Amino acid sequence: MDHKELRDRFAALTSAHVADACLRAGVPVRCAPAEVQAVVEGGRVAGRVAPARHVGSVDIFLEAYEEAAPGDVLVVDNGGRRDEACVGDLAVLEAKGAGLMGVVIWGLHRDTADIRAIGLPVFSMGSTPTGPQRLDGRPEDAVESAVVGQWTVSRADVVLGDDDGVLFVPADRVDELLALAETIRDTERRQAERIRAGNSLRGQVQFERYLAERRRNPSFTFREHLRAVGGAIEE
């Protein structure tokens, strides 16, 4: 799937839809920690991961841009550090000039006002005024993979971000997952329309039937019931 199709299809979805699709498809749900949020409310990002492991100097980002393709998203691993900002306005401006679609940081940013003015979507754990005051050794895989929370991601992954947070999915399954997400979205929209029209969610999912079955079989789960009746509120 090319970058444009990915962005266009995700524009009509949310990261929650895709996370639910991962559950349904048996794909690990790899969410960035909840602290990683859009610097500008309403920011959205979708693209192949361009990884970078920060060691204290901006040159690692410049190298990542050399390796990246237009439409990629810089994913910065700064170990979730809260004592320094690892990305500022110049790194974001350079990313935009290189054709990247956004920046996701497992760490902090600075130059918030300038980043907002640049307009490139940036997701981070927050901001602090100070930049790095260290220079560590550069790992061999510094632009091959990045760790975000408990997950290691690479160019074999796609990153999707919106107001709910950031999610990573395998690039070779993104078409399948987006198709499932579209089905889930459409089902949920129909359910919401029926609730507004006076048909409760309990009625739609035949909740009384579920309770009756659970009385007969205490191990029967609500998810099993939803699969039988075509609900989509949990997976």
Score class of each variant (00 low, 15 high):
46 A>W: 02
47 G>F: 05
47 G>A: 03
48 R>L: 07
48 R>P: 02
49 V>P: 03
49 V>E: 04
50 A>T: 01
50 A>K: 00
51 P>Q: 10
51 P>R: 10
51 P>N: 13
51 P>I: 09
51 P>C: 13
52 A>T: 03
52 A>V: 08
53 R>L: 07
53 R>D: 09
54 H>K: 08
54 H>A: 15
54 H>L: 15
55 V>K: 01
55 V>Y: 06
55 V>N: 06
56 G>Y: 03
56 G>M: 05
57 S>W: 01
57 S>T: 14
57 S>M: 08
58 V>M: 05
58 V>A: 15
58 V>Y: 03
58 V>I: 12
58 V>T: 12
59 D>E: 15
60 I>D: 05
61 F>H: 08
61 F>Y: 15
61 F>T: 09
61 F>L: 13
62 L>C: 12
62 L>D: 11
64 A>M: 14
64 A>P: 02
64 A>N: 09
66 E>K: 14
66 E>S: 11
67 E>H: 12
68 A>D: 00
69 A>L: 10
69 A>G: 03
69 A>K: 05
70 P>F: 07
70 P>L: 10
70 P>W: 09
71 G>E: 13
72 D>A: 03
72 D>W: 00
74 L>A: 14
74 L>M: 11
74 L>E: 09
74 L>N: 04
74 L>F: 05
75 V>Q: 06
75 V>D: 05
76 V>P: 00
76 V>Y: 00
76 V>L: 03
77 D>L: 04
78 N>E: 07
78 N>C: 10
78 N>F: 05
78 N>V: 07
78 N>Y: 09
79 G>W: 05
79 G>V: 10
79 G>I: 07
80 G>V: 09
80 G>R: 11
80 G>I: 06
80 G>A: 12
80 G>M: 08
81 R>Q: 11
81 R>D: 10
81 R>A: 15
82 R>T: 14
83 D>R: 05
83 D>I: 03
83 D>N: 09
83 D>A: 07
84 E>T: 11
85 A>V: 02
86 C>N: 13
87 V>R: 00
87 V>E: 01
87 V>I: 09
88 G>N: 01
88 G>K: 00
88 G>Q: 01
88 G>H: 00
89 D>L: 09
89 D>N: 12
89 D>A: 15
90 L>R: 13
90 L>P: 01
90 L>T: 13
91 A>V: 12
93 L>M: 15
94 E>L: 12
94 E>K: 12
94 E>A: 15
95 A>Y: 03
96 K>F: 11
98 A>P: 04
99 G>V: 14
99 G>D: 14
102 G>P: 12
102 G>V: 14
102 G>W: 10
